[in-house]
Simulated scan of single mutants.
Amino acid sequence: MPRKLVTVRRISALTPIKGADRIESATIDGWTCIVSVGDFKPGDLGVYFEIDSLLPGSDERWAFLAANSGRSGSPPADIRIQTIRIRKVLSQGLLVPPAVCPEVVEVMDRLQKELGRAGMEERILTMSFEDVLGVRKFEGVTSEFKTAGNIEPLAEFPSFIPKTDQERVQNMPNVVDEWRDAVFQETTKMDGSSMTVYYVRRDSPYYDLLPPLPEKTVASQHPNGRVGVCSRNRELGEHMGKQARNGSFFWATAQAAGIPEALARCDRNLALQGELCGSTIQKNFEGFGAGVHEFYLFSIWDMDARRYLPPREVHEVWAPRLGVKHVAVEGYRPLGEIASSVADLVKRADGNGLYGRKREGIVLKHVDGAFSFKAISNSYLLKHGE
């Protein structure tokens, strides 16, 4: 499901900030945002731009957020919403009164005429407005865009495999109450690039949906099927792996770990999904040694069953069977034993990663594999400017 970047939220509380007369802290679900005093009352609706929203710099409404207004006649740079501290108070996102966004007010007015006030509020809280406001998600430059020789990816990410994505726990204020007695797998979230390695049998209906292979490809082709390697948004040709020293490490890492051969031996329509980490990935926040790149498995999609395999099975059976590394597993416990609130989960996300640096956070997966979410460390977000 695409991430909702711009939504209408209800302000649940307003908290004064010590030593500040003009600003206060607004609570919306599990988030806190700094707002101007007088903009809101508890119970009001506001338009919320989540962190990593990229606002169009050409929109004058956001000029007050811009670091500069462009140089030498160039258009203003787009504006990324990040986690910051103001007067030692955390602010995550941008919250503005609906009147700042007439596009949203127009929808609210129409819905109120159709459904009444209560019906409008119920409906508007489920909608998103990034498209109408020209907002997109900030995407850092990753290895998939640094391949040598301007080699193009094979195709878009396969439509028959879900992209890796987790909802943030702050957007799920009731999750602990609703899932308190359910058992979850808790894992460390690693900071790298999303990577998927799939195997499709020749007799699968998905085989005909695969993009044509370039000439002289070897690792992709197997007697009974085909292997593919993908970044978050693209399928990549195996020729990219031969140029790893110049920037593309997806195929090279998959081959070094023996993943294509292991999947071919299993001869099932499966997609391994995990994190590609290493010295050239995401500024090496994890702290890998020079030239070291590794794939860390966190889930397996069963194409025939159209579901994720149970996470414990992936961890204890499939990772050893395939000979691949798995992200660190903290344990399997009822969610209510892991934390008592969203705030507890966010605090729990703090900690150290594989090589002692601040970790990105944690991921919680229900043991049936059908439901999961993440908690990102605020310390990590502040440290890395996210």
Rank of each mutant, 00 (worst) to 15 (best):
V6T: 01
V6Y: 02
R9P: 06
R10A: 03
S12E: 15
S12N: 06
G19M: 04
A20L: 14
S25T: 11
D29T: 13
G30Q: 07
C33I: 10
V35G: 05
D39L: 08
F40L: 09
Y48Q: 02
S53H: 13
L55Q: 03
S58N: 14
S69K: 14
A77I: 01
I79T: 00
T83E: 08
L94V: 12
V105S: 08
Q112G: 10
Q112K: 13
K113Y: 09
L115G: 03
R123S: 03
L125P: 01
F138A: 14
F138H: 12
E139K: 11
N150P: 11
I151S: 11
L154H: 10
T164D: 15
T164G: 13
R168S: 09
N174D: 08
N174H: 05
W179S: 10
R180E: 07
V183K: 08
F184M: 01
T196R: 08
L210C: 09
K216A: 14
R226A: 02
V227H: 00
S231L: 06
H239Q: 15
G241Q: 01
A244F: 05
N246M: 12
G247W: 15
A252E: 15
E261R: 09
L263C: 14
L263W: 13
L263Q: 10
R265W: 05
L276P: 01
G278Y: 04
T280V: 08
N284C: 14
G289R: 13
F295V: 06
Y296P: 14
W301E: 12
R306N: 11
R307M: 15
P311G: 04
E313P: 05
H315G: 15
W318T: 02
W318F: 12
P320K: 06
V324M: 07
A328E: 07
A328D: 02
S340H: 15
D344V: 01
V346T: 06
V346L: 06
A349P: 00
R357N: 13
R359V: 07
K365V: 04
D368Y: 08
A375P: 02
Y380H: 12
K383W: 08
G385W: 04
